[in-house]
Amino acid sequence: MNELVRMTVVLTGLATIAGGVLAAVHSGTADRIAAQQLEYVKGPAIRSIMAATTNNPLEDSFQLSIGEEEKTVFIGSLASGGTAVAFEEFGRGFGGDIGVMVGINMETETILGTAVTVHSETPGLGAKAKNDRSFTSQFEGLPVSATVAVTQDGGQIDAISGATTTSRAVCEAIAQALERYQMLHADLQKTVN
């Protein structure tokens, strides 16, 4: 019996101490981890959109509550003196959700740029959506009021050949972003200024 008690005590004790130590390490690294996640997950997309900003959009970001959702909005100061915002939206693709970061120039009310953040599409096609300039450049300069859809759906965007679903998902995400921008326009304007 004594043996059993000892076994239990040692196990529990060790587990408890480990829990304490881990909690301490976690609280010590939590901020840095969050920063890193931002840097490496959203960072590349933001940079590609806001290449010309004078500030670091990753640092100048804020949380915006939209209903139950929390959205991180990145702010960039443009060289022209204007401001741009960027946030992420999702569209339903072939292998799962496709994340698209959409940057909007608040001065001109046009799309500054788009970048695919996450996708689980067939290798090659998803990557094309990410890197194919002829596809992504189509969005640049579109006004926020524009309807974004592939030509097959009656829109003006040429889909990536052989990857209509993926292209459609990207358009879906961008359209949703524009819609949300217009909805939140007032809030955004307030926060930015």
Partner: peptide
Amino acid sequence: AFVTVVELLMQAYTY
């Protein structure tokens, strides 16, 4: 415990 520490540290420094 050590693996978790490594996980946390790697997330923080070599993401």
